[in-house]
């Protein structure tokens, strides 16, 4: 073996008490409240356990049961539709809003951003209350729209979207979009503001219009943000719980009985903690695959 000159190894120094204390505290905390529960979830997934009676190990039975559980499969489907439709539409709307705000002067930008951020800081429960009435056929928007169209001589019959199996999920999707629009827009706005202005000036001098500037400058430079936001949005959207739990309670029928709600109910209504844990592992796997595949796609398609 040829001897290769190696960089001198940093000499071992006794870590200071600060380093020792903080590093150990971090390690212990995350082991205790993160790694341990995660491993426990994996283990509980192989058990039959209601927290009270004795624990019965059942092997892969919980996972097998999922394949036969029609409500579970429905929950999986509903969640897939919700997440699959919501994330791309929401991200596009957020990007468009961010780009529009970026082109405004400081004052209107601030005012609009504040307006769009109000839903972000509003607790879900209050958002649910507001939309409960806004969606109400008689008191809310459907009635208002019917009146407006009626005055124009067009007969419409808009009704509460949450009342029908076909539109309930759509209603919650709209609400979720409304709630997080300002958040994503702010992230995109900050990202766009970091792009050097000289790039746009150069493009303008070359005669590129707004659309081409967006296509050839903003979009390529914003893609890393898009990727990060997309991954976190998938993780967030699949776990949305509050509006389903408080507003539709999974109904009508099982039309909005999403993964997170079904998992919660299996654990805290049916006391099937083993089954719920196994479901949590499935959720983790799905999100892991989604995240990794997005990263992989981004790597192959966007990096040259």
């Amino acid at each position: 073996m040829a001897t290769v000159a190696r960089a001198p190894r940093p000499r071992w120094r006794r870590p200071s008490s600060f380093v020792l204390v903080v590093a150990l505290a971090l390690l212990i905390y995350y082991m205790l409240f993160f790694t341990a529960p995660f491993i426990a979830a994996l283990v509980i997934g192989f058990l039959n356990w209601d927290l009270l009676s004795t624990v019965v190990p059942v092997g892969f039975d919980n996972y097998v049961a999922m394949a036969d559980d029609r409500t579970f499969k429905n929950a999986l489907k509903v969640s897939a539709i919700f997440v699959g439709a919501y994330v791309p539409i929401a991200l596009s709307a957020q990007l468009i809003l961010g780009a529009i705000l970026a082109n405004m002067r400081t004052l209107p930008q601030k005012v609009y951003l504040t307006l769009f951020f109000l839903p972000v800081v509003t607790p879900w429960l209050i958002a649910v209350l507001m939309f409960g009435y806004l969606f109400n056929t008689q008191a809310g928007l459907p009635g208002m729209l019917n009146d407006i169209f009626g005055a124009l001589g067009i007969d419409t019959s808009f009704v509460n979207p949450l009342g029908s199996k076909d539109t309930a999920l759509l209603g919650i999707m709209g609400m979720t979009g409304w709630k997080f629009l300002g958040f994503g827009a702010l992230i995109f706005l900050v990202g766009i503001n970091e792009i050097p202005l000289t790039l746009y000036e150069a493009a303008r001098i070359d005669g590129a219009g707004a659309v081409r500037q967006f296509r050839h400058i903003t979009w390529p430079l914003i893609r890393p943000i898009m990727l990060a936001l997309s991954i976190t949005s998938f993780i967030g959207a699949l776990q949305i719980f509050d509006p389903f739990f408080v507003m539709t309670r999974g109904g009508p029928g099982d039309a909005t009985n999403v993964f997170s709600l079904y998992l919660y109910r299996q654990a805290f209504d049916q006391f099937r903690f083993g089954y719920a844990s196994a479901m949590a592992m499935v959720m983790f796997l799905i999100l892991l695959i989604l995240s990794v595949s997005q990263l992989a796609i981004a790597r192959t398609r966007w990096e040259y």
Binding site: L26, L27, Y30, F33, F34, A36, P37, F38, A40, A41, I44, L51, I235, L238, Q239, S260, L263, A267, F273, A276, S277, A280, M281, M283, F284, L287, L288, S291
Partner: peptide, 20 residues
């Protein structure tokens, strides 16, 4: 290790955390 906790959904540790 610390970063990885950001990628794991809350629901993955929800049930055992409750138990703990």
């Amino acid at each position: 290790f610390v970063l990885s906790t950001l990628m794991v959904p809350f629901f993955a540790i929800f049930i055992p955390s409750f138990v703990v």
